[in-house]
Design a protein around this nucleic acid. Structure first.
Lengths: 214, 214
DNA sequence: ACGCGATTGTTAATCCTATCACAATCGCAC
DNA sequence: GTGCGATTGTGATAGGATTAACAATCGCGT
C-alpha cells in the first residue's frame, strides 16, 4: 500500500471515478472489479491492483460500494477541492475553452484570462476581463493560480510556459501543438487531437478500407 | 525491422514528425538522435529504437536528414493522404471542432456534420450543412467517411458510436466524457481535458503549494 | 452456526518497454 | 588515403507493468 505509485495507475483513476459516477447516477450501489472491468475494457486484476496502491476499498464476496469508492478516488486525486486556472490566449480556441462548462462542473474554475493582443485586452468573456500578460505576476499573486492553460499559437507556446512557470504555476494544460519544456516540479498534460489522429491513421491504413480482420 | 510494432512506438511517431516539421521550418537540415531527444525530453536510444522498427533512416556519424525523416514518418503513419471525417453533435463543442483550422492543415478534412436536434438540422456551419442522423448511412456511402468525431453529451455517446461503427467507420475521436465500447477492428482516441487535469491534480496536491522539491 | 459461492487483496510469474553499450560505419581533416 | 570523432542500428540487460492465481474472508441461505 505505501510503495511508490506508478504514474500509469494515477492516470487511470479518473477513468474509474468517472465510470463510478455514471453507475451512481444509474442507481448502481455496488460493483465488482469484474463488472467494472467489463465496462471499461480492462482486466479486473488491474483494477484491484491499482486500488491496492492506495488502500483497501472493497468487501470480499461483494465488491465495491460505488458511492464510497468514487469519493475515495476523488479524494486521492485531490478532487475534493477547487482548482484555479488561468487561460493564456483567447483566440478561437481559448474562448472555446473559457466557455466550456465541463471544467467548472468538475471543480476546475477559470479565474483569469490573458492575451497579448491589445485589441482583446480589456474585453470580457463570460464574467472575466482579458488581461495583458504584463499583469500575470500581479494577478497570479492575487488569484492563486494552480493551473495554466496554454492556448496560444505554437510559436508563442514555450514563451508563455516560461512566464507561467516563473510566477509559480506548477500545472499546465497544453493545447499548443508543441512539446513544451518545463522544470521537473511542473506537471504537464498535452491536449492535441491532431496528434491523437495521426497515430490512429497508422492502424486505419494497415487494416484497409473494408478489411474486417484487424 | 519487421517484427510486431508496439503501440507506444506508433503513438510517439507523430511527436517526432511534429518536432521535425518545426526544425525544418527553422532551417535545420540534419539532426542527431541526441539533439532530437533533448528537444523532446526523451532518450536518444528511444528515438533510434523506435525508428529501427520501420527501417534505417539515419547516417552514422551525421544523424538524420530532417526533411527526409519527417516525410518517411508521415508516410509510415499514412499522413501522405487525406482523411475524411464526420462530426456528430454540433453543440458548442462540435461547432468549435468544425471550425478548428488545425485539422484541415494536417490533411484531416471534415466532410459532414450530424445532429439530432431539428432546430440545428439544415443550418450551415462553414460550408457544410448539418444533417439528421437518419441520413448517416446515405452520407457515409456518398462521402467515404474514415473517421467519426463524437461530440455529443455523455448519455448519447455510446449510441452515436454504435451508429458510426454500423456504417463502417473504423476510427473514432471521442470527445464525450465516457469510455466507449467498440468492436476490435475499430480504433478510438479519447480527447478529454478534464480527465487529463484530474490525474495532474494528484501530483499538484502531493508537491504542495510552494514546495520546490518534487 | 455452518457451508458455500463470490470476490477481494496480494504474491508470483509473465510480458512488455526502455535503456545500455558497442560494433559498424560515416565524413572530414590532414 | 588514413585516422579520428561522431553517430547510427541493435543485441543484451534491466526495469516496469499486467496478468494469473490463490489464500483470506464476506454475506447469505438454511
Amino acid at each position: 500500500m505505501s510503495e511508490r505509485i506508478p504514474e500509469v495507475v494515477v492516470r487511470r483513476l479518473p477513468i474509474y471515478a468517472r465510470a463510478l459516477g455514471q453507475l451512481e447516477a444509474r442507481g448502481v450501489a455496488v460493483i465488482s472489479s469484474l463488472d467494472l472491468g467489463r465496462l471499461l475494457g480492462v482486466t479486473p486484476a488491474q483494477i484491484r491492483k491499482d486500488l491496492s496502491y492506495f488502500g483497501e476499498f472493497g468487501k470480499q464476496g461483494t465488491g465495491y460500494d460505488v458511492a464510497h469508492l468514487k469519493r475515495e478516488i476523488r479524494r486521492i486525486l485531490g478532487l475534493d477541492r477547487e482548482w484555479r486556472m488561468a487561460i493564456v490566449g483567447v483566440g478561437r480556441l481559448g474562448r472555446a475553452i473559457a466557455s466550456y462548462p465541463g471544467f467548472a462542473s468538475e471543480g476546475f474554475r477559470v479565474v483569469a484570462l490573458f492575451d497579448n493582443d491589445p485589441a482583446k485586452i480589456g474585453t470580457t468573456i463570460g464574467d472575466l476581463v482579458v488581461r495583458s500578460m504584463d499583469e500575470l505576476a500581479k494577478v497570479a499573486a492575487d488569484e492563486r493560480i494552480d493551473i495554466g492553460i496554454v492556448a496560444v499559437p505554437a510559436d508563442q507556446g514555450q514563451e508563455v510556459v516560461d512566464k507561467l512557470v516563473a510566477v509559480g504555476v506548477t500545472g499546465l494544460l497544453n493545447y499548443a501543438p508543441i512539446t513544451i519544456s518545463v522544470p521537473p516540479h511542473v506537471r504537464v498534460r498535452d491536449v492535441d487531437p491532431v496528434v491523437a489522429l495521426q497515430s490512429m491513421t497508422y492502424y486505419l491504413k494497415h487494416s484497409g478500407p473494408d478489411d474486417p480482420a484487424s
